[in-house]
């Protein structure tokens, strides 16, 4: 387990949280430290919003999803400590969950393939281009190297918010086929991301 915290209290004034790990920030958030929440938002807010927007396709709903997710982080960061996951995984899973809950409630899922829905704009600032743009390219490149039916299962499930049963019905395939495409797709994606050096390590 990563070293989460030091036992000494954080300095009271002008704290520089830039070099604090995501995991340590979460444990500060668990102690109701709002500066740590702000720092986490600065690190993940943009990715979170991009994801929510991709799923919900509506700016107001996407903002709601991101807000709910960060407030859930605020309220339940102590639960992360028992999780076997990177902080980024935990945070983005929460954002995804809220977005999917909302899209299912609003029933905003569309019938057409997601590819035709228009790619979101690439990040525009130099700094974002250097980090988010790189990660975005790596993930999209990895996705493009999956077998098309694996990619379809991941995209319709993850970005489309469809359940496995809805996906099976929509594609006219047995549920077992969908499950196995999701499994092989995610496993392969994991390998490809590791090869590209994006994935840090789950042991």
């Amino acid at each position: 387990m990563t070293a989460l915290l030091t036992t000494s209290p954080p300095p009271a004034a002008s704290r520089d949280l830039a070099h604090v790990s995501d995991e340590a920030l979460l444990s500060l958030v668990a102690s109701s430290d709002d500066q740590a929440l702000a720092e986490l938002y600065d690190r993940f807010g943009r990715v979170a919003y991009g994801l929510a927007l991709r799923i919900l396709r509506d700016e107001a709903l996407a903002q709601d999803a991101v807000q709910e997710a960060f407030l859930a982080i605020w309220r339940s960061a102590d639960r992360f400590l028992a999780e076997r996951a990177k902080a980024s995984t935990w945070i983005l899973t929460l954002v995804h969950r809220r977005s999917v809950d909302l899209v299912r409630r609003e029933d905003r899922r569309r019938g057409e393939p997601l590819e035709s829905a228009g790619e979101p704009a690439a990040p525009e600032t130099v700094e974002d281009e250097a980090t988010l743009g790189f990660e975005r390219r790596v993930v999209q490149e990895a996705l493009s190297r999956l077998q098309p039916e694996q990619r379809e299962a991941l995209e319709l499930g993850y970005y489309g918010g469809l359940t496995q049963s809805e996906l099976a019905e929509r594609l006219g395939l047995p549920l077992g086929t969908i499950k196995s495409r999701m499994f092989t797709g995610l496993s392969r994606l994991r390998e490809l991301l590791a090869e590209a050096g994006l994935e840090s390590s789950y042991p």
Partner: peptide, 26 residues
């Protein structure tokens, strides 16, 4: 698998959220 799934979020990076969202959350 969760870690791989979460990294799919980076494939959807798009425009920045409006600045007031940060204030609203905090």
């Amino acid at each position: 698998l969760k870690e791989a799934a979460a990294s799919l979020a980076y494939g959807a990076v798009g425009p920045a959220p409006p600045p007031e969202l940060r204030e609203r959350i905090l």
